[in-house]
């Protein structure tokens, strides 16, 4: 079997651009998804049960339907409705963020609920408001426990950004498919894409491990 390095080299400028876009899409998804996820998670655990319903349904929808379908809906439906034209990059960021937020909300909820009730009681007994107790006592501890599952979610998000290729967002897989289409080759484009994704996800887990070790208190 011959392996044509020349076509990888020919496509390397595009793959570099695609990689940068993948990183950009992922970072945007992680950032927006985390902020959104925090609010949805807090919304779901609030005491007034009636107000939790929108958050419960949000999570049910975005966790219960394929990201593939969500991207198509957002790209061809939601975004044109809002700005009058399609835009692959915006649609991808929106879809990734909304989808990740549903999972991250559950991670936040589990993290917050895993903190012993006594912590909230101790904080409140000292005169702190509920918000202060959350801000200074509960969330810092919950955040530490959330790093491993959050890391998982971020890695999933990087990989799932590859679905953006189907709405012609020029990230890694878009160029991989272009290469495959032009030369009728299988191994070169897809193995190259796989290696790039692997480097991205390994770098992220390395950074998260570093953070986790940093936050240890013993």
């Amino acid at each position: 079997m011959d392996f044509r390095f020349d076509i990888i080299i020919e496509y390397s400028p595009y793959l570099v651009k695609g990689t940068l876009l993948t990183i950009g899409l992922s970072l945007a998804g992680i950032l927006i998804g985390t902020i959104l996820g925090l609010f949805i998670g807090l919304g779901k655990i609030q005491r007034r049960k009636l107000l939790t319903w929108p958050f419960v349904w949000y999570i049910t929808f975005f966790r219960g339907t394929p990201l593939f379908v969500q991207i198509l809906l957002i790209h061809f439906g939601v975004i044109p409705m809002l700005i009058g034209e399609t835009n692959g990059i915006v649609a991808t960021i929106v879809a990734l963020s909304l989808n990740a937020a549903a999972y991250i909300a559950e991670i936040f909820r589990a993290g917050i609920q895993s903190i012993d009730r006594g912590q909230m009681e101790a904080a409140r007994s000292l005169g702190m408001t509920h918000v202060q107790a959350m801000r200074y006592v509960i969330l810092p501890q919950a955040f530490k426990r959330m790093i491993p599952p959050l890391g998982n979610e971020f890695i999933v998000l990087i990989k799932e950004s590859s679905l953006a290729a189907i709405v012609a967002t020029p990230e890694i897989m878009y160029w991989g498919r272009a290469m495959a289409g032009q030369y009728y080759r299988v191994w070169e484009p897809y193995l190259t894409a796989a290696v790039i994704y692997l480097i991205l996800t390994l770098s992220l887990s390395f950074l998260l491990n570093l953070l986790e070790r940093r936050l240890k208190t013993e």
Partner: peptide, 20 residues
Amino acid sequence: INKVREEVGMVFQHFNLFPH
């Protein structure tokens, strides 16, 4: 109630120190 709690200290069976 927060104002009142400022004046009422409480010590718990399981300490409930902030571990972080």
